[in-house]
Design a protein around this nucleic acid. Structure first.
Lengths: 227, 227
DNA sequence: CCATTGACGATTGTCGTCAATCGTCAATAA
DNA sequence: TTATTGACGATTGACGACAATCGTCAATGG
């Protein structure tokens, strides 16, 4: 016998499962931006009815990773430089709020989570495997948002984060053999402010962090778009 | 003959029309929070198929003004004090960003729009009709967000605004015979900062505006919830 | 040769129907 | 009397089929 009581089984409607599956499939980079999706074959592949699949597609569209062209089909969004700018300004704003709130309600266990996240990121940077760094990076920011204890903020952030993931997956901006040590140096001040329970500094550091990264990224994109 | 060329007619899918219709119906306050909705009668009322209606319902759920209880029904969300706190902190964050951006890219025509909006609000306050004040208030803030020229921000703000509208419609917080002149005094500094093209001040004023209102509201709600 | 148009295949938009699941309430037995 | 259980009505969940609309491309006429 197990110690813990039985947990209620996680029941997911077929639509929810399909949405999950599709979302991960797209975000994994298996589908390139602009790639076309048609309902009928997709429904057959997933073994569900078209109407069911369709709900999932609509949801992903409302989340901004798919676009629908009436009577023509669905396609994975192709982000422009302006889109990336929008994403980063928005992310900066949301994460600044999250950081402030997280610092305000920081607990010992929360601080431990932040420490763990930043150490994971540090370890990943030392190993130098791009995918791992990426993952640890997202996990670090996600930790902060979760610690803010703000359901709607969490949901809005998730949508932005998702599109950022899509962008990262569809480009190789992270493949530049940059010095990975700078990545961790860019995160430590924010983590420190959080652990120190300093809302003002946490908010400022979050804003600074996002803005520097965002500016670099947008500049790189515009350079690519022009010629 | 008319001068202007024919504009493309606005074609809306039945689903989109149903969504629009439902959204306004709910936001108008015709349905009280917690009120139950069943698909079949609703579909009949609107004269559309259940599957079509259902897509609209799902959308409204993802926008946070409906909740779905599996195999049971849909209902209008009932916002708690915590929810209102979430809404106002989020709105503050988003509108601060919008105000900063709007101030940065302010043009003469933009400034005119801000002036017009604030004058409308002022006029409404003098007349003292609650509904008009309310409408002008939302229009003022919407003007700022539009002027920011940030599609995603606009969409995220819309969702928050919607829930705020729902909350306002379902309560009579605005019915207190407050001195309406204070309303306009709370808005003028922000408008002035925007017209002066001062991003820092605009951002700060937006934050201050939202926080004072939010705190007052949340405090009033908690007082109502406790006993 | 080229612009126009009509038809065709492909794809989504919408609909009606049946299956799965929920809450409730009465029947039952200790 | 009261806790359990079985059945019922109500409601959503999922499905397959038909209609509307799109882009394309060949046929047509100048």
């Amino acid at each position: 016998m197990e110690k813990r009581a039985l947990r209620p089984i996680a029941r997911l409607s077929t639509e929810a499962q399909a949405t999950l599956s599709l979302r991960e499939h797209i975000l994994s980079g298996a589908l390139k931006p602009g790639e076309r999706l048609t309902e009928t074959p997709l429904a057959e592949q997933l073994g569900i009815a078209r109407a069911t699949l369709r709900m999932g597609l609509h949801r992903l569209a409302s989340e901004g990773i798919l676009v629908q062209i009436p009577y023509t089909g669905w396609q994975v969004v192709a982000l422009s430089a302006d889109d990336v700018w929008e994403l980063w300004t928005l992310r900066s704003s949301l994460e600044s709020l999250a950081s402030r709130l997280a610092a305000e309600r920081m607990t010992d266990s929360g601080a431990a989570k932040v420490s763990e996240a930043v150490e994971n990121l540090s370890a990943a940077c030392r190993r130098g495997r791009v995918n791992d760094i990426n993952k640890a990076d997202f996990a670090f920011h996600r930790t902060i948002v979760d610690l803010a204890g703000h359901g709607r903020l969490s949901e809005h952030y998730r949508q932005v984060e998702q599109q950022v993931r899509l962008y990262i997956a569809s480009t190789n901006v992270y493949n530049e053999p940059d010095d990975w040590s700078v990545v961790i140096e860019h995160h430590r001040p924010l983590a420190a402010a959080l652990i120190a329970r300093d809302p003002d500094r946490a908010e400022a550091e979050a804003r600074r962090h996002n803005e520097t990264f965002g500016k670099k990224l947008v500049a790189a994109m515009r350079k690519d778009e022009q010629p």
